[in-house]
Design a protein around this nucleic acid. Structure first.
Lengths: 222, 222
DNA sequence: CGAATAGTGTCTCTCAGACACTATTAT
DNA sequence: ATAATAGTGTCTGAGAGACACTATTCG
């Protein structure tokens, strides 16, 4: 047993040692997802890595930052996105730690992957690409996008617009279009309506100004 | 070893070096789960905290350790369990990072919670208590147990003994008893058999030496 | 034999998938 | 009127829940 870690016998000696051995840098990297033109998209920023400097072609990466002392991971996510895109009021969800030694050629860096979902308008200043085109990213960010995608799709199979991209009131058609964009495939109208209508309540109001029979507006239950 | 050197080579000059940031200590804490006497149990070790020194009553915690440089989180989990219980050949599954500032009164410590499932015989040297009795643990370890429980139960609803507690061959009754222990409740025989038999194949052999009609032995598919 | 467990059959209810039909609006 | 969308009805097949029945072993 390493005696840096065998610390439980004497608290005072351990207090000294906590900062005495090597510690990793801890970063957060965030898959910022949105829907634009019926496409599920992810925000990317330019990467500044040794590989880019050496080989030329511009690498892209997910926005991220190192965690500061006294800050939670979620706070670090919010800070990095506020700095890079001016987005606020987010609720980051933690996905997984990426800890492979050598994943970052700058040294010992662990990254805690997060997911955040925002309306497309909030991403005016950021490059956004369809998730299908987000390949070949820096570090292990391809994997993070994969994970985020799987998580988001799972959430959207169970709950009507859990990320609240549509606001509080919406029609069933708008909801279905959104869920189809997230899923990346068409959904059956009957099954979708039956499944979702149980988790919604009608507001009593109708949508106006559209072609066809006016649709009822719904609100999320609970 | 000097990680400053390997860092400075690759960094842009205008960037801060990795080691210029304050870095957290990163620990792993593991919910070691097992089934004993039809009860789902978790391994606990004595905790040595400031609170314990102040108030007297013995606190318990999940086994854990700080992560070493050049080591993955899974390796750290294996090392901590090999040291404390002599267990080997594990496949730790990562659950979640606990990062609340102040969660550890020794300083800035993040803990990556893990789950590991082992046969009860492997835990001879460790104190094991039913999960229902694992309350009031040190740090945020109550939450980790909760999470681990939810995860394990989810896995066991979908797959026959995913942790392979029963070995490679078993009867449907043994499998059902195990799944009931994990779930903490009785399961319906019909539904359980129908659901599981699709994911199993009969070995062609029968169990011997038991009361009643001899049961077929099954093996996991795939 | 009776107790205990294994394995099969079958009825009902729910729900997904699929299709058809009616209703209401804009152009 | 026609296109387009909203909403409802209904048939079918798969599967869960529930119960009953037969089969095989031990003591």
């Amino acid at each position: 047993m390493c005696d840096n870690c065998q610390v439980t016998n004497n608290l005072d000696s351990h207090r000294k040692r906590l900062t005495d051995y090597p510690r990793p840098s801890v970063a957060v990297d965030t898959a910022v997802l949105t829907v634009h033109d019926d496409q599920l998209c992810v925000a990317l920023v330019p990467a500044q890595t040794a590989r880019r400097l050496a080989t030329g072609p511009a690498l892209q990466r997910l926005p991220g930052t190192f965690v500061h002392e006294g800050e939670t991971l979620a706070d670090a996510v919010r800070r990095s996105l506020a700095d890079k895109a001016g987005i606020r009021g987010l609720s980051p969800v933690q996905l997984q730690v990426f800890d492979a030694p050598g994943r970052d050629d700058r040294g010992w860096v662990m990254s805690v992957a997060h997911i955040v979902v925002v309306p497309h308008q909030a991403l005016a200043d950021v490059a956004v690409v369809p998730v299908s085109a987000a390949k070949g990213l820096a570090f292990d960010h391809d994997q993070i996008v994969e994970l985020a995608l799987a998580r988001l799709r799972l959430d959207y199979t169970e709950t009507p617009d859990p990320a609240r991209l549509l606001g509080d009131e919406f029609t069933l058609l708008a909801l279905q279009r959104l869920h189809e964009s997230v899923a990346g495939e068409r959904l059956m109208r009957d099954t979708f309506r039956r499944g979702m209508e149980r988790k919604l309540e009608p507001t009593g109001q109708l949508q106006t100004g559209t072609v066809g029979k006016p649709a009822r507006l719904f609100r999320r239950l609970l």
